[in-house]
Amino acid sequence: MKLTVVKWKDVAGWRWDVPDDEVCGICRVPFDGCCSGCKIPGDDCPLIWGQCSHAFHMHCLIKWLETDSSQQQCPMDRRPWITAK
Rank of each mutant, 00 (worst) to 15 (best):
M58E: 15
D68K: 09
P19G: 02
S36F: 14
V11Q: 13
H59N: 10
I62K: 15
I48N: 02
F31Y: 15
D17N: 13
H54A: 00
K7V: 02
C38Q: 14
M76L: 13
P75C: 05
F31C: 04
I40F: 12
H57A: 03
K63M: 12
C24V: 00
L47M: 02
K2T: 08
D10G: 09
P41W: 12
E66Y: 08
S53A: 08
D44C: 03
F56I: 01
T4G: 08
K2P: 01
C35K: 06
D32P: 07
S70P: 12
A84S: 07
W14G: 05
K7C: 02
D77K: 03
D17S: 07
I48T: 13
C60G: 05
I62E: 15
S36V: 11
V5P: 06
P80F: 06
R28A: 05
G13W: 12
W16E: 01
L61Q: 01
K39F: 08
K85L: 08
H59G: 03
P80H: 08
K2I: 08
Q71W: 12
L47A: 00
S69E: 14
P75A: 05
H57R: 06
S36P: 03
W16V: 01
G13P: 00
D17V: 04
T4Q: 15
W64Q: 08
P75Y: 11
G33E: 13
P19M: 05
